[in-house]
């Protein structure tokens, strides 16, 4: 300890806090890894460290016994397109809220926040009745289609994300727009050429938040997708450990969890340099 504190010097308390936090953060993840490698694949035989040897048999079982690859692809398609489109929709709305002054602007901003606070799950009854009709009329967007599910997720495109973006857009000095307009730019050119490149950090952050939100969404997807091959990761994995199979399927569930984390970690690493700056409104000085 004394040798350690000498090298760490006055920063020992920082290391202490950080090591404790890292341990806390890692214990459940190590447990999941251990469960994924546990050849018996049950919850009751899983400890923090694999004791019965390690094997990849759970990975094989997951792909052999469930349409996991389908679920994975479905989740990537739905979450990817919903995140991408909703970020675009949200960004143009934030541009309007940040740059134009119009009647209903205050009310509009406040309503966006308030609507999100309504317990949405009851609306599922309404969505179900709505989409029973849609399935009859336009099967391409009905139940058991990824396009229909994506469309419902896009209904939430305007919301907290729009607020985050608007706050960030406000930090981009208006003089930039004005000088571009002097040079003969149209409002779309101002948006696409001037603003968008400057707000890349907040686009990265809100994109990530939207992606994480939809890949975790369970209630609506559960109503929408009923056929095994159509499911997303959230409903597919949840179905693996229902009451009867909770113990037996734990290993393959853990593998599924780890594989689900991969796209998020990848997006995260890709965008990391933007994220710290983008999460805080006004963190970039104009």
């Amino acid at each position: 300890m004394s040798a350690r504190s000498k090298t760490a010097g006055r920063n020992w308390w920082r290391h202490l806090i950080l090591i404790l936090a890292v341990v806390f953060a890692l214990v459940p993840i190590v447990f999941v890894v251990s469960a994924a490698l546990n050849p018996q694949g049950t919850l009751s035989s899983t400890g923090l460290i694999p004791t019965d040897g390690v094997s990849l048999s759970n990975v094989g079982d997951l792909f052999a016994n469930t349409p996991f690859a389908h679920w994975y692809l479905n989740s990537i398609i739905v979450s990817g397109s919903a995140a991408f489109i909703s970020i675009f929709i949200s960004a143009i709305a934030a541009y309007a809220f940040s740059r134009f002054r119009f009647a209903g602007r205050r009310v509009g901003l406040m309503s966006l926040l308030l609507i999100q606070m309504f317990p949405q799950f009851l609306a599922i009854v309404a969505l179900f009745l709505m989409f029973s009709e849609v399935t009859e009329l336009w099967p391409a967007f009905g139940f058991n289609t990824l396009s229909g599910l994506t469309l419902v997720y896009l209904g939430g495109a305007l919301g907290v994300n729009t607020w985050l973006m608007k706050g960030f857009f406000d930090t981009v000095p208006k003089e930039l727009d004005e000088s571009a307009v002097m040079d003969g730019a149209s409002h779309t050119q101002v948006f696409f050429r001037i603003i968008l490149p400057l707000v890349a950090p907040i686009l990265a952050v809100t994109g990530l938040l939207a992606f994480i939100g939809t890949i975790n969404e369970y209630l609506i997807a559960n109503v929408f997708l009923t056929q095994p091959e159509n499911k997303t990761l959230a409903i597919g994995l949840f179905g693996l450990i229902n009451e009867t199979n909770r113990n037996a399927n734990f290993g393959i569930f853990a593998v599924g969890t780890l594989l689900t984390a991969i796209p998020t970690v990848a997006v995260f690493q890709l965008l990391q340099r933007y994220i710290v700056g983008g999460l805080t409104v006004g963190a970039v000085k104009g």
Binding site: I92, A126, L151, T162
Partner: peptide, 20 residues
Amino acid sequence: YLVPGTLLLIAFQIVPVLFT
């Protein structure tokens, strides 16, 4: 700039909330 998001918001959030 606001219409695309607003139309989606009305169809899939406000209408269900009003129904509720």
